[in-house]
Structure formats: C-alpha cells, structure tokens
C-alpha cells in the first residue's frame, strides 16, 4: 500500500487530488480485483492488475487515462453509443457511482512500464506519415494534431494512443467506420476513419502501439 502511494506521488499524481476520494477508491479497488457481485466481473482479469491492459488479447490500458474520458466511455457503453459485446453488459452492471469510482481509480494508477517494441517503427512509413502529417487530400488531419505528440493524449477529450495494443486501435477505427462506435464529439473520428483503408489502419495502429509512454505519469 505504502509503496503504491509513493509511486503515485512520485508519478506526479497530486496528493491533494487523491485525498478526498480515498474512501471511494477502496470500493473501486475491490471492483477492479473482485467485481461487484452484481454481474460485473473483476476489471483486472482483462485490463491487468496494474491497469496496463493486455497486448495479446487487445484489451486496452486504462491506467493513467483521464478520469472524465473513462467515465464517458463507461456511460457510452451503457447507453449503447459505443457498442461492444464484452463491455456493454459490464458497464450496464455498474451503478453511475461505480462508473465514476472506477474511472477515478484507473486515472490515478501510474502508467505501467511498457516493454520496448521488438522492432522500432519506421519514422517515414505509411503509419508514421498518417500519424504525424495526416492525409489532407482526403481531409484526414494528422492523428497527433488531436491526440498529441506521439499520441500521449490531450486533456479529457483526446485519449492517448501511445502504447495501446495495435489490435485495439485497429478495432476502434473499424468500429467507427461501421458505426458501432459513434460516441465521438463532433463525429471527428467517424468522419476521418471513413477515409482510411485496411492498410492505413494496420500501419497507423502499429505505429501508435510502438510509441513510448510517458512512464509513471498519467497523461499530461
């Protein structure tokens, strides 16, 4: 427990912001490790004990993501604007308070150390070009223009892409194309993803999956 606290503090989490929700975080921790006994399984069985996700299975990292973003996603699963066979029943089994608590809990977990990619991604490949320059001839801005340099994420509305499993990133782009995910503000992602081909998706997903995370810190 103490060690974890130290990690949080060292990781740049504001102590002041952590105090008032301490009581609530106990419940969220139990939710993460045991589930709520009302249909929500333990989150960590898929998202990992440290919230780091699971690369091989394509389960996303939750640790260090913005609390507002996470809470919105859980609400969107529950409401159906983000359709997913696994997460929808889980989000619906959570009360509104539990969603908030889980979001707050994961937002404060330090970003886990990511293993270095076996092979660094080319800086001039198709994935890098889409990520850093976009393809304006098809009105696709650079991903970095909204998701931040290297995909580290920006504020509550623009989630990090860096280090997320490539399979997860690709699945989201396809979900927007197909309209099963339609919870994006101003339909920003729905619009630009329609201009992407299968090879674009593959390349850009791999590129972001290989980007380094700002270690031990929640997204800046």
């Amino acid at each position: 427990m103490r060690g974890k606290w130290m990690a949080w503090v060292a990781g740049g989490t504001l102590l002041a912001a952590t105090w008032p929700v301490l009581a609530g975080s106990t419940g969220a921790r139990a939710l993460a490790s045991e589930g709520n006994g009302r249909g929500a399984p333990p989150c960590q069985s898929c998202h990992g004990a440290d919230g780091g996700g699971q690369e091989a299975a394509g389960f996303p990292r939750l640790a260090g993501l913005d609390a507002g973003y996470l809470a919105k996603q859980l609400a969107d699963y529950a409401a159906g604007t983000r359709a997913n066979a696994v997460m929808q029943p889980i989000a619906r089994a959570l009360s509104a308070d539990e969603r908030q608590a889980a979001a707050a809990y994961y937002s404060r977990l330090p970003v886990p150390m990511a293993p270095l990619p076996a092979r660094p991604e080319a800086t001039d490949g198709a994935g890098a070009t889409l990520a850093t320059r976009g393809r304006w001839s098809d009105r696709v801005p650079a991903c970095e223009q909204c998701h931040g340099p290297g995909g580290v994420g920006v504020g509550a509305h623009f989630p990090p892409l860096a280090g997320q499993p490539a399979a997860y990133i690709a699945a989201q782009l396809k979900a927007w194309q197909q309209g099963t995910r339609r919870n994006d503000p101003l339909e920003l992602m729905q619009h630009l993803s329609r201009a992407l081909g299968a090879e674009d998706i593959e390349a850009v997903s791999r590129w972001f999956a290989a980007q380094p995370l700002p270690n031990g810190r929640s997204t800046p």
């Binding site: 909204c146 340099p149 580290v152 504020g155």
Partner: peptide
C-alpha cells in the same frame, strides 16, 4: 479543442 476560455491546450509546454 480551443478550450472554454479560448486559450488552447498544451502538452509538455507546447500548444497542441
């Protein structure tokens, strides 16, 4: 994107 106060948003000291 530009913030409720129009002052933009930064990452690591630079405006995104």
């Amino acid at each position: 994107c530009h913030g409720a106060d129009g002052q933009g948003q930064k990452v690591a000291g630079d405006y995104v």
